[in-house]
Design a binder for these strands. Structure first.
Length: 423
RNA sequence: GGAGAGAUGGCAGAGUGGUCGAAUGCGCGUGCUUGGAAAGCACGUGUAGGCGCAAGCCUACCGGGGGUUCGAAUCCCUCUCUCUCCGCCA
């Protein structure tokens, strides 16, 4: 959510932000609601003030005297009027709040112009994609793939997109998780194991609700949501809290399974491990001082990149253009790994700065030493990393002539052997 | 799952219809005192919103929501959470 003061004092900034994100929002309607709300608020507060001073007068009077009874009669009318006005105020407030939630975060000045994913800027590319794996095949076409990852059985037991991982497949997935967590902890993140179901208040604070309700799995009868990413429980950890300035930055990492209904997905994107309903991911989260958030974003990106470098996987970094930037993000880098068999890039991490947008919605603040007043923190997050697509890239890029997959040196201590077998 | 007790400011803990944004203690901050510290003394110490150039003024908040009343921390309903006991269980 944006600062209402920013909207009032500088609506053109907001208008420009909406344009850069290529969204359609009736800003004038929001402004009109805000004006109406303030007028109603003044009326209601005036009536309350009247009620309060009458209360003090009546406390000093003797009950049952004619003047007391007259005052009660007078204040009955005020009470009725207040009730009516207050209803109008609440109604307007709800509409205003809903309208405020339709306003996107302001893109950072370094975010490139653009409308579509094609206009994202290729910020950096690492590793040679042409020379990798002459034997590469799309991972689902590698002979013996079903011995490692069984979609058919998963579909029988649960549904499409819930594969079983078996033998070396399960082991490689576990090795990657362990490797990611160890590296992230080394980089200064504190490991957290959060709940994987969250309540509606948490899902609302991070923006999954109300708009993306259909993307989450919901439980009955408790109405909890299976987390689509560890970002949700992790960010909500400090919801409605005031941190010490000295605490910042707080850096945390967490592994969770992630559950996404992916309603509306189709086509070649969804083959194999590219898109599944349940997957494992390590998420990186930072709560930082506003003055440091863009430095922290670069560090976050570097931390995620280092994982791919140690795995010796070719990848590129995209700087998202305004139109492809998420609703709540100010700046975002995507990390895409090269999948040699499919000959395409797969997104394995998305590193974003939300500035105070999430923090305002979740009311996460710190006490500024200079003023003693609470201020909103800036939040950032990024994957470090998502397992299935990294696993897919390893299978495709490192496939040898003999049908085995070479395990990168950094992962061997975790995997326990140098080659993976499809048998 | 059954029975009971509770939720008040940073913490502890008063307050059962009006003068209560809330006693008192602790903590914290500033000052006095001191060679320095402790103790002591004095003053101060929540969050949010609106109005105002400002000084400041006003309003809301006693777990959440609803109700009764001229008026609710206080009475009623409801939800959530915590604690104790019993049962069950990895």
């Amino acid at each position: 959510m944006l600062d209402p003061k920013l909207l009032r004092e500088s609506p053109d900034t907001v208008r420009a932000a909406i344009a850069r994100k290529h969204l359609e929002v009736d800003l004038d309607a929001v402004l009109a609601l805000d004006t109406a709300w303030r007028a109603l608020l003044a009326e209601v507060e005036g009536l309350r003030a009247k009620q309060k001073s009458a209360n003090t007068e009546m406390a000093a009077m003797k009950k049952g005297t004619p003047e007391f009874i007259a005052k009660v009669q007078e204040m009955k009318a005020v009470s009725l009027e207040l009730k009516a006005r207050d209803e109008g105020l609440k109604h307007t407030e709800e509409k205003l709040h809903a309208a405020m939630l339709t306003l996107p975060n302001i893109p950072h000045t370094t975010v490139p112009e653009g409308r579509t994913p094609e206009e994202n800027q290729v910020y950096a590319t690492h590793g040679a994609i042409e020379s990798t794996s002459p034997h590469a095949q799309a991972h689902w076409e590698i002979p013996g793939f079903v011995n490692l990852i069984d979609f058919a059985r998963g579909a029988k037991v649960t549904g499409a997109g819930f594969p079983f991982l078996i033998g070396d497949g399960a082991k490689l997935s576990r090795a990657l998780l362990q490797f990611f967590l160890d590296e992230d902890v080394k980089a200064g993140y504190t490991e957290v194991s959060p709940p994987i179901f969250v309540n509606a208040a948490s899902a609302t604070a991070t923006g999954q609700l109300p708009d993306k309700e259909g993307q989450m799995y919901e439980t009955t009868p408790d109405h909890l949501y299976a987390v689509p990413t560890a970002e949700v429980p992790l960010t909500n950890f400090f919801r409605d809290e005031i941190l010490d300035e000295d605490q910042l930055p707080v850096c945390r990492c967490a592994y969770t399974p992630c559950f996404r209904r992916e309603a509306g997905s189709y086509g070649k994107d969804v083959r194999g491990l590219n898109r599944v309903h349940q997957f494992d991911k390590v998420e990186l989260l930072k709560w930082v001082h506003p003055s440091a958030s863009y430095d922290e974003l670069e560090k976050l990106r570097a931390d995620a990149e280092r994982l791919l470098q140690k795995l010796e996987l070719p990848y590129r970094v995209l700087l998202m253009c305004g139109g492809d930037l998420g609703f709540s993000q100010s700046k975002k880098y995507d990390l895409e790994v090269w999948a040699a068999g499919q000959k395409r890039w797969l997104e394995v991490s998305s590193c974003s700065n939300f500035e105070s947008f999430q923090a305002r919605r979740a009311q996460i603040r710190f006490r500024a030493r200079a003023t003693g007043k609470p201020e909103l923190v800036h939040t950032l997050n990024g994957s470090g990393l998502a397992v299935p697509r990294v696993l897919a890239a390893l299978l495709e890029n490192n496939l040898q002539a003999d049908g085995r997959v070479k395990i990168p040196a950094a992962l061997v201590p975790y995997f326990g052997k140098e080659y993976l077998s499809f048998k």
